[in-house]
């Protein structure tokens, strides 16, 4: 597969009277053709700056970018017709209808007006296309934003938080739409905070933290890289948890005691747990591997796991050593 979007060593620094802030610090990313690629990161990690830079709205301080095999921003005017994008919250003139909004964009982009009706149908706005946008809910505006990005029938679709404001049915429709579009050969780059959705929709992900890439690859690979051998152990009586933990530590296990179970790591064979506890007259009622999901991997990699009693501040995320690669690697 060929990469339709490649970024290498992207840097962007904001300077103000308050000081210097590195929004992007050598960020890398690659998205293969035909994939739905998730782009994850905590607030202020550099996601939107990356997308804006890629789309020519912000000038980078360094690094290389390409879209559809062409270096950008130099070739952006040539490839823009094949890249549909929404960045951050959708914003439209409140007094224009959805049909007017798309029709004006179609005119500006040289897209046939017949495409407007197709897109309105596709995003489910056909029956409300004549109403003023200011009467729309956030979810309807989001549909319109996606519609505006789809108007060009792009080869690459870049969506920043497309499920924001959608109801559960809308989120499911959006998920189906993404898969359908990817199935038709369109590449989709999806920035989102809804990690469950990303895990369901995306073939691959890139995780960004403090302006650097901290993980990248297929969803399965990223999960596998951060899977643990830990198991969850429940015993018949909660009163036996403390003595069970002691017994397991004696055989070299790492044990954390939770209110109604133990999490045990550092044991090659889970059978050793049952044998050790049975020898003490304690019987195991549940022995299950601790599953890892994208959310836990995200929280671990970005250092944004909530800590009881602490209030994490924006930008207070882990500047983990960057995962190198990208640009065809």
């Amino acid at each position: 597969m060929s990469a339709v979007l490649e970024i290498q060593g992207l840097r962007k620094t904001y300077r103000s009277r308050r000081g210097v802030r590195r929004a992007l610090d050598g960020f890398d990313m690659a998205v293969e053709a035909g994939q739905v690629h998730g782009f994850l990161g905590p607030n202020g990690s550099g996601k939107t700056t990356t997308l804006r830079t890629l789309l020519g709205l912000i000038k980078a301080d360094g690094g290389r970018m390409s879209l559809l095999g062409r270096a950008v921003p130099q070739a952006l005017p040539e490839v823009a017709g094949q890249v549909g994008a929404i960045v951050e919250s959708p914003q439209f003139f409140g007094n224009f209808s959805a049909r007017d909004t798309l029709s004006l964009l179609a005119d500006a982009g040289g897209v046939p007006q017949s495409r407007v009706a197709e897109v309105l149908e596709l995003v489910g706005l056909r029956d409300r296309a004549g109403e003023r946008v200011k009467t729309y809910s956030l979810g309807l505006k989001q549909r319109l934003a996606v519609g505006s990005a789809l108007l060009k029938n792009p080869r690459l679709l870049i969506l920043d938080e497309p499920a924001n404001g959608l109801d559960p049915g809308g989120i499911r429709e959006m998920r189906t739409l993404m898969r359908t579009l990817a199935g038709s050969g369109m590449t989709v780059l999806l920035s989102s905070h809804i990690l469950g959705e990303i895990q369901l929709i995306c073939d691959s992900v890139t995780i960004i933290s403090a302006g650097r890439r901290v993980a990248a690859g297929t969803v399965a690979d990223v999960l596998a890289r951060h899977a643990t051998s830990a198991v969850r152990v429940r015993v018949e009586s909660v009163a036996d948890l403390t003595s069970s933990a002691g017994a397991l530590r004696e055989i070299g296990a790492r044990v954390s005691v939770e209110p109604d179970h133990l999490v045990v790591g550092g044991i090659a064979q889970p059978g050793a747990i049952t044998r050790t506890l049975a020898a003490r007259g304690i019987y195991v009622s549940e022995l299950a591997p601790v599953a890892v999901d994208l959310e836990s991997v995200f929280l671990e990699l970005t250092g944004t796991t909530p800590v009881e009693g602490e209030h994490r501040q924006v930008d207070q995320s882990t500047a983990t050593p960057a995962v190198h690669g990208g640009w065809g690697q």
């Binding site: 789309l55 020519g56 709205l57 921003p73 952006l76 005017p77 823009a80 994008a85 960045v87 919250s89 959708p90 914003q91 439209f92 003139f93 409140g94 964009l105 500006a108 982009g109 505006s148 060009k152």
Partner: peptide
Amino acid sequence: GAEWSSGGMMNLLLWRPR
């Protein structure tokens, strides 16, 4: 001015990056 404050200018520049 309304184009800038409503985000319309940004939308347009995504279509016409000139």
